[in-house]
Nucleic acid binder design. Structure first.
Lengths: 191, 191
DNA sequence: GGCTATGTATACAGGTTTGTAAAGTCAAGG
DNA sequence: CCTTGACTTTACAAACCTGTATACATAGCC
């Protein structure tokens, strides 16, 4: 419960619902939420609209499911990178983001969605939760790996801003800024 | 020429066009681009649709004009703050952003627009230019005020990421992150 | 006076959007 | 054998969207 009661368990989804979610995830990220209609999603996934509405309620529900599913599949990738990383493990965040940026070219899906949606949208809490988890996980790693840091919370937020600032501008400045952010972060952690 | 040939000179606009631009700027920022229709803009500004299309061509043209106008009115405010600031003047960026954040609550208008628009959209170059000007102006101030800095370009980008990272998350984390970013920046500049 | 630019009022074309209704197919499992 | 659940097909309702056409009013300026 708590967070997990909103998880999307792919095994619980019918094949049609799973296909819809896959196609919607791809299109929503590549083109944004508003430009992609449910007709397009239904056509592309070869599953009909009534099934879409039966499974996700309405478009807003599908958007929320898209972001939840994206988080749920991405998070284990992050944790695996953290588990495999040398100390200071906080740099693993930069590596995972850089790896993502090789295949996805529109920056942060959550910030993009937040820019399009009103705060009342059911997906907005998903966005907030995702960012909150990133920020707190980063703070945990700093506190564990650099226990002698005078102000670990401030250092964690410092890295958070470097990481997220670079990713937010990925579409404008490309991957270079992310690499530069990583170098700066490395310098900060060495002291 | 160069950049200025795309400036929006408010004196060159007819009263109707000016009103349209004002109303569109407000609505596009507050609600986003896609949710605001031209009918709404025409109704709210009490100027009819044919005048809107005569002055701005189409909705895309109005969106581009919105961002150009926003930049053109904001930039002198920034320059005034820079002129009035003590060294290191780079901190003036944080103060202007923080002042903005008191009245506007949806973060960076340019990142928000970038998230909604395709790269082929006529407004996209306006977004790129705005961010580029911010980044280079910041680098100029660093180079002038801290001439002994070993790597001024890297320090400038460091501040850029702190500044923009905090502003990009304004809608999620509020003004606190911006204040924290400023403190971190102050610490970096003191050395 | 007459030209030009600005704006109004009204209506419409043509397309796209979300969302629903109704009837029927197909396969697994008790 | 028969119920249940997943899915299809087709059609439709009701908004909403961008953009245009037509005809008229008004005011400044040469």
């Amino acid at each position: 419960m708590g967070v997990d009661d909103q998880r999307i368990d792919l095994d619980d989804l019918t094949p049609g619902a799973r296909k819809i979610l896959e196609v919607a995830s791809e299109l929503f990220y590549e083109q944004g939420i508003h430009p992609v209609g449910v007709d397009t999603i239904a056509a592309e996934s070869k599953v009909t609209k009534p099934i879409l509405y039966k499974n996700f309620g309405n478009k807003d529900g599908l958007v929320a499911a898209y972001l939840r599913h994206r988080h749920d599949t991405w998070w284990p990738v992050l944790e695996a990178a953290i588990a495999a990383a040398e100390k200071p493990r906080a740099l693993a965040f930069f590596d995972v983001y850089a790896e993502d940026a090789k295949t996805i070219t529109r920056g942060c899906a959550y910030l993009n969605a937040a820019a399009e949606l009103a705060e009342e949208h059911p997906a907005y809490s998903v966005i907030r939760r995702h960012k909150h988890l990133v920020r707190t996980r980063l703070a945990e790693l700093i506190a564990e790996d650099l226990p002698d840091t005078p102000d670990p919370g401030s250092l964690a937020d410092h890295l958070f801003l470097l990481l997220e600032g670079a990713f937010a501008h990925h579409r404008i400045y490309g991957a270079g800024l992310l690499a530069e952010g990583r170098e700066i972060a490395e310098g900060l952690l060495r002291r």
